[in-house]
Amino acid sequence: MQPGKKLLILAHMVAHHEDALICDLAETYAIYDYRSMPCRMAATLSCGLRNDSRVKLEMAGVKITPEQMMLASIVDRIGMIGWMMSDRRKGRKRPASILQAIMGEEKARNENIMAYVSGQEFMDEWNRLAGKEG
């Protein structure tokens, strides 16, 4: 990578994600004050951080690593297989997606919300659902 490009990347890291950069440099290289070193060296070491480092994840706008995404996806699939093999007719809801929750895509489920005008109306519906009509 060209030195000029490394310096631009370092400048972006410092401007937008400095705390993450400091943590990554301390963890990876035991560098606690990157400002005391030559700028080109700091840029080279910063660009050499792993792709799952805090600063690189933040720059990419990602909350978790690809490995964590894959593990959450596996858990979701296993949960779905278990749900599909169970007796779904007994009212077991489809399991929520862990991956969607982590990524912030899980939306509140409002599909079965009902409102009742009176307590008696609620009790009548409760009894109907419980099979106590009569």
Score class of each variant (00 low, 15 high):
Tyr34Thr: 00
Ser118Tyr: 08
Arg40Val: 12
Cys23Asn: 14
Lys56Ala: 03
Thr65Leu: 07
Ile9Arg: 14
Leu25Thr: 07
Gly131Ala: 05
Lys6His: 05
Glu105Thr: 05
Met69Glu: 15
Ile74Phe: 07
Glu105His: 10
Glu67Arg: 15
Leu25Tyr: 09
Ser118His: 07
Ile22Asn: 06
Ser97Lys: 03
His17Asn: 11
Met13Phe: 15
Gln100Asp: 15
Gly104Ser: 07
Arg40Glu: 14
Gly48Asp: 13
Asp76Ser: 11
Cys23Gly: 06
Ile64Thr: 11
Ser36Asn: 09
Val14Lys: 14
Gly82Cys: 11
Ala130Val: 03
Lys5His: 11
Arg77Asn: 10
Glu18Ile: 05
Ala20Tyr: 10
Val14Gly: 00
Asn112Thr: 08
Asp19Val: 10
Val62Cys: 09
Met41Tyr: 04
Ala101Glu: 04
Pro3Asp: 13
Leu10Phe: 05
Trp126Ser: 04
Ala115Pro: 00
Met41Gly: 00
Arg89His: 07
Pro66Cys: 06
Ala130Leu: 12
Ala30Met: 06
Ile64Met: 13
Leu57Cys: 05
Asp124Gly: 00
Gln2Met: 03
Gly131Thr: 04
Ile81Ser: 01
Thr28Leu: 05
Cys47Glu: 00
Tyr29His: 14
Ile31Gln: 06
Met41Trp: 03
Asn110Pro: 00
His12Phe: 08
Val55Gln: 00
Ile22Lys: 14
Ala115Phe: 14
Leu7Trp: 01
Val14Phe: 02
Met80Asp: 05
Asn112Cys: 04
Met123Pro: 00
Glu105Gln: 14
Glu125Ile: 02
Leu57Arg: 14
Glu27Cys: 12
Tyr29Gln: 02
His17Val: 02
Asp76Val: 09
Gly119Met: 09
Met69Ser: 13
Met1Ile: 08
Gly79Arg: 04
Leu71Phe: 07
Glu111Trp: 11
Ala72Cys: 14
Ile81Trp: 02
Leu129Gly: 04
Lys5Leu: 13
Leu129Ala: 12
Met85Phe: 07
Ser118Gly: 10
Lys132His: 11
Pro38Gly: 02
Lys132Asn: 14
Glu125Phe: 06
Gly4Phe: 09
Tyr34Leu: 13
Ala15Asp: 13
Glu133Tyr: 08
Trp83Cys: 04
Gly61Met: 09
Gly134Ser: 15
Ala30Thr: 07
Asn110Ile: 10
Ile64His: 04
Gln68Val: 04
Leu7Pro: 02
Leu49Asn: 10
Asn127Phe: 12
Ser36Thr: 13
Pro3Val: 07
Leu99Asp: 00
Asp19Tyr: 06
Pro3Met: 09
Lys90Asp: 08
Asp124His: 10
Cys39Asp: 04
Val75Pro: 00
Ile74Leu: 14
Leu71Thr: 07
Met70Ser: 14
Met41Asp: 12
Met1Gln: 03
Gly91Asp: 08
Met85Trp: 05
Pro38Gln: 08
Ser53Asn: 09
Lys90Ala: 12
Ser86Tyr: 03
Asp76Arg: 04
Arg88Cys: 10
Leu57Ser: 04
Ala101Asp: 05
Ser53Ala: 12
Asp33Leu: 05
Gly131Lys: 01
Gln68Gly: 02
Lys107Arg: 15
